[in-house]
Each structure stands twice: as C-alpha cells, then as structure tokens.
Amino acid sequence: MKKSALFGALAATTMIVGAATAGTLDDVKARGELICGSNTGLTGFGMPDANGTWVGFDVALCRAVAAAVLGDPTKVKFVPTTGETRFTALASGEVDLLVRNSTWTYSRDNDLKLDFVAVNYYDGQGFMVKKDLGVSSAKELDGATVCIQTGTTTELNLADFFKFNNISYTPVTVQDDSEAQRQYLAGACDTYTTDASGLAAARATMADPENHIILPEIISKEPLGPVVRHGDNQWGDIVRWTFNALLIAEEKGITKANIEEVASTTTDPEIRRMLGLEGDYGKMMGLDNGAFKAAIMAGGNYGEIFEANIGSATPIGLARGLNALWTQGGLQYAAPFR
C-alpha cells in the first residue's frame, strides 16, 4: 500500500514536471495570476513603491500582459530575480514571463533556449564616474577599478572594450545594482558600468546626482526586452502583440484617458480591429476580443508608460532617443495589426 502510494507520487511528479513546459496561457488562466520575473529593484524599471506595489517601465509591460490575458492588471505576482538567477527561473517554469532589462543575444536565444519576443528598450552600456575623478572619456579609464554586475552581458562587453582599446582594468564583481552602488559610492571602484538607462536610474537615487557623470561612450548594443520560454509560440505571440498594441496605440494617439472615446467614435479599421470592435483578432490567440483594449487601459500606450516611469519629467530623466516611434526618428516599430 505504501509502495503504491510512493510510485503514484513519483508518477504524478513526473507528469507535473512534463506538463509545466507547454501551455503557459492555460496555466496562467487556471491560476488566475501572471507570474512575472522582475528586477530586484531598479528605480524606474521595476521596484516596489512605498506601499509595496510594483511600479516601473518593465513592470508596466507585465501588467499590460496580465490585463490582456486575465482582464485585470493587478493580477500579477512579481518574482525578483538577480542577473544570475533570472534565466534559470524562467527556464524552470518559476515565472511565466521575464521582463527585467535582459539583453537579447544570439546565445541566449539559441543556447539557453529562450525567446526574446520584443525589444521594449534599446539601450547601450555606459560608464558612470564621480565628477572629481577628472575623467571625460571611457578611454581614459586605463588601470581603473570597475564595478560590474555578474552574470550579465555587460561583463563580457567590458572585457572586450578594454581589450580592444588596449587598456587594463581591475574588475569588482557584485551581485546586484544596490551592491554596485554601495561599492561605487564607497570608492571601492572608480567607475560603475551597466546599461546607460540603469546608470541614469542609479544616479537618480543618489544623494548627490550632480557629482556623478555618465561618460559619453556607449560601448555596446543592448536591446532589452521581454523573454519567454522557447517552444511555447502561442504565449510568445501574446506577449509580442501586447507590446505591439501599446506601440500602435501611441502611433494612433490612443491614450489611457481617451481610449473609451476613441473606441466609440473611431472609423480607423486598424484601431477597430485592435480594440476588438471588428473581427475576431483576440480569439485568434486564445484571448478575449477586448484583450488589447484592456492592455492599453492598464498603463496607457508605450509613450505614456515611458514618460510616467523613466521619461524626462521623472528623476531618471531619460530622453526617448532610440526608443522614439519610427515616425519620430526612433526604432520602435510595430508590425501592422491585420
């Protein structure tokens, strides 16, 4: 009797493990909650506010996906992950979706068996130094001690950059952004390197932002985007098109405030398709027809999310730059909703 119970348990475990690898949409619907892998705390991109509610640029995308799938942007559980644990958390099924300043690279796409379904922020790696160090270019950093987060692409870019410019450095590897800031502020390293957006966010939280400068060199391409597991194409499509819907909404001037008005008055066929007023586009991917409308209502369009979390009016003060829409000279370009 005991033995059969044991084998039953073993068999059940095997089946659960087997089942967890496909059908993320059904899992999320059955659970009634989206589990989103987020940063351990990066101001503007993803961290809990004073009330413990997660806010930020990456967080807003998670909420939009939750709104599209479950109809409620608050039904998200955020799991903080470090640079080292994030992909393991995704691959093991601990999180459904990873939106955590993760760079899309060839080996992550192929060797780690992950799918980067969109690019929500075009970034590049930069260096931050204290003003009194008297450095104005990254090429003057010969012999410097550099704080670097371990398990990131920046670690490899850094080695490449110094090697290419034939200068040397001493690395100080740290686990996360807060530890890096502590070491940098304490003077344990001369410069802190990470994505330029991350540097801007870090500087915004410092007591004396005016005493720190971000050097002009951007030494790498860092397309940051949401990641899903390889092999679950339906789930990947949902995330990709939720993001596209946010971009199209900005392009078409649909905002959180005017979406109801637009929905009732518009004659633009693309908007009507996207907001579920025409055709069965939501149902094509297993969602409600009003899914993308809900996604836009969650936090507004892409531009609104950008400005509210990291834009020029916030302490982080990032300009749109490469992340402007293609119509305004940027790279953000959504495929047509047809």
Binding site: G83, E84, F87, T88, S107, R108, D111, L112, T150, G151, E155, L156, V172, T173, V174, Q175
Partner: peptide, 21 residues
C-alpha cells in the same frame, strides 16, 4: 563577498554565460 572561487567562476559566471547549469 564576491570572491571568485570555484563557486564564483565555474558555478557562477561560467554557468551563467554558458547556461550549462
């Protein structure tokens, strides 16, 4: 304390960069 011993190299950065957990 970010000391790069066996856990820091093989079990840390190498593991992470190659994805061979």
């Amino acid at each position: 304390v970010s000391y790069l011993d066996l856990k820091g190299t093989l079990g840390g950065i190498s593991l992470n960069q190659t994805g061979r957990e």
